[in-house]
Write a protein that binds this DNA or RNA. Structure first.
Length: 486
RNA sequence: GGCGCUAUCGUCUAAGGGUUAGGACGGAGCCCUCUCAAGGCUCAAAUAGGGGUUCGAAUCCCCUUAGCGCUACCA
């Protein structure tokens, strides 16, 4: 079994394309098949190297890999020979009509009545006439001669959409070769699918109606077409199809990468758009996805990627990334986090990172969150904060000072382990006739620089005696400065 | 305009003739608790509309509506 993913390098890797690639990959891995990456670059006008690179960039980030790789631009001979073969069988003809020059937007919306199907004079042109004009160097496009004197229907079975049928008489005589000699998408794609022995074509639903044309080409060339499976499209909250121009960077996979997503969490999220394992599972490992993936589980209706102007990330994707982060082994997560910490300019080694990671693991949803959650473990100096933050419930600056002084006293003796710190500080609270919360808050703020932070005893243990006492002393000094000035 | 496809909570989805229409995200509330998270529990929230077929329809058929796709040398 052989599947292919065939992006054209006219933009970056789009979220919908990424999902198509993922589904192809999953289908192949589930069935022990081969994944082929084929760059569909026959449109020389619009292809760019930058775009090609960004597609590789996106694909590499997904970290799934592929088995074989081709570029259509290196296979033009095959495409032309295939077109010639169809022409030789009399199933294609030359059309010397100059390229349609009307405004295409208007032509499709304003045109009344029947759609264009073919240019009768060209379809009926005698072979002698055709050869003569071609020999004279007159440019032409090669069109498929769609059978239309019968009531025959073109049919195929789609693994997602079921049986499909369309009257041949409703299919226009599409182009195989352009007047510049380059193959069209239809020609190149089918010729390559045949030559690369593709068994299953899994692609976006925007190709569903093109498939009738492809079936005609496959029949003309080989008599038999591969299997088809079309995927529902990914659309924007406004119902429009995702486009760079209209929706901005949300449509690029690099948006998620740059936001600090785990590649696998992103893959997991994309899988849930248009496919379901049918058993309510959502967080799934790569192997679980491979095992569960079946084309029968693919939906038929388009799925909305739920983003907003203020937030380009789908909330469910954010949640799912958090789930993967929360359940990841500590060492693995620490390894993911360390580069972010170092890029921020902080001193950190693997050992320190592994100590800090368990304290922040369930408090982050994307990797860069480490910068705002764990800063207090890495920064030498705490950012300045309002000393009034040190005041506990039902207390005042005096209470804060009292707590901090007591903390300084007991912490200079206590062992810096979780259990020892907890019992020491709880006893101190009792001695001061304060509730535990009133005792802990001033210390937390003194040591973390803010009220929301990881649990106090673990935090103190990781910070160590020296840093903890230094920060408590600084807080105390700040409080005393205010009270004496007042 | 023609042809094709689709239609379940705001979003992702389950249920493919018989269920109080299930789960998840997001939202609200409660619990847990040294703060924040995480976790647990609860609540609000859907079968586009109309006709059939059937004892019985979200599910099958038809119509309407809406959305999407393709539509003369983009892929």
């Amino acid at each position: 079994m052989r599947v292919r993913f065939a992006p054209s390098p006219t933009g970056y890797l789009h979220i919908g394309s990424a999902r198509t690639f993922i589904f192809n990959w999953l289908y192949a891995r589930h069935n022990g098949g081969t994944v082929i990456l084929r760059i569909d670059d026959t449109d020389v006008e619009r292809n760019t190297e930058v775009s090609l690179n960004s597609i590789y960039e996106g694909l590499n980030w997904l970290d799934l890999g592929w088995d074989e790789q081709y570029r259509q631009s290196e296979r033009l001979d095959l495409h032309r020979r295939s077109a010639e073969a169809i022409f030789a069988k009399g199933m294609a003809y030359r059309d010397f009509t100059p390229a349609y020059s009307g405004d295409e937007q208007e032509s499709t919306t304003q045109r009344e009545g029947a759609a264009w199907l073919f240019n009768a004079d060209m379809r009926e042109l005698s072979r002698e006439q055709s050869d003569r004009r071609a020999a004279a160097g007159e440019p032409f496009v090669l069109r498929f001669r769609v059978p239309r004197d019968t009531d025959r229907a073109v049919t195929f079975h789609d693994h997602v959409f079921g049986p499909q049928s369309k009257l041949a008489a409703d299919i226009e005589d599409f182009a195989l070769l352009r007047s510049n000699g380059m193959p069209t998408y239809h020609m190149a794609s089918c010729a390559d699918d045949l030559d690369l022995r593709i068994t299953h074509i899994i692609r976006g639903q925007d190709h569903l109606t093109n498939t009738f044309k492809h079936v005609l080409i496959f029949e003309a060339l080989a008599g038999e077409a591969p299997q088809f499976a079309h995927l529902p499209l990914l659309i924007a909250p406004d119902g429009a199809k995702l486009s760079k121009r209209k929706h901005g960077p949300v449509v690029s996979v690099t948006t998620y990468r740059d936001a600090g997503f785990l590649a696998h969490a992103y893959v997991n999220f994309l899988c849930l758009l248009g496919w379901s394992p049918k058993d309510n599972r959502e967080q799934m490992s790569r192997q679980e996805l491979i095992d569960a993936f079946k084309l029968e589980g693919v939906n038929r209706s388009n799925a909305v990627v739920n983003f907003a102007d203020e937030d380009p990330i789908d909330p469910k994707a954010m949640w799912l990334n958090g789930q993967h982060l929360h359940t990841m082994p500590v060492d693995e997560l620490a390894a993911h986090l360390l580069p972010y910490v170092r890029n921020a300019g902080w001193q950190a080694d693997e050992a320190k990172m592994r100590q800090v990671t368990p304290l922040i693991q369930e408090r982050i949803r994307v990797l860069p969150d480490v910068l705002t959650v764990a800063d207090l473990f890495f920064a030498d100096e705490l950012a300045p904060y309002d000393p009034n933050e040190l005041i506990p419930q039902k207390g005042d600056l005096g209470t804060a000072a009292q707590v901090l002084e007591k903390a300084r006293e007991v912490l200079s003796e206590a062992a810096f382990t979780h259990d020892s710190l907890e019992s020491t500080l709880r006893e101190a609270a009792v001695a001061l006739k304060l509730k535990p919360g009133q005792m802990f808050l001033p210390i937390r703020v003194a040591v973390c620089g803010r009220k929301t932070a990881p649990p106090l005893f673990e935090t103190l243990a990781v910070l160590g005696r020296e840093t903890s006492l230094k920060r408590i002393a600084q807080a105390l000094a700040n409080v005393q400065r205010i009270t004496t000035h007042a």
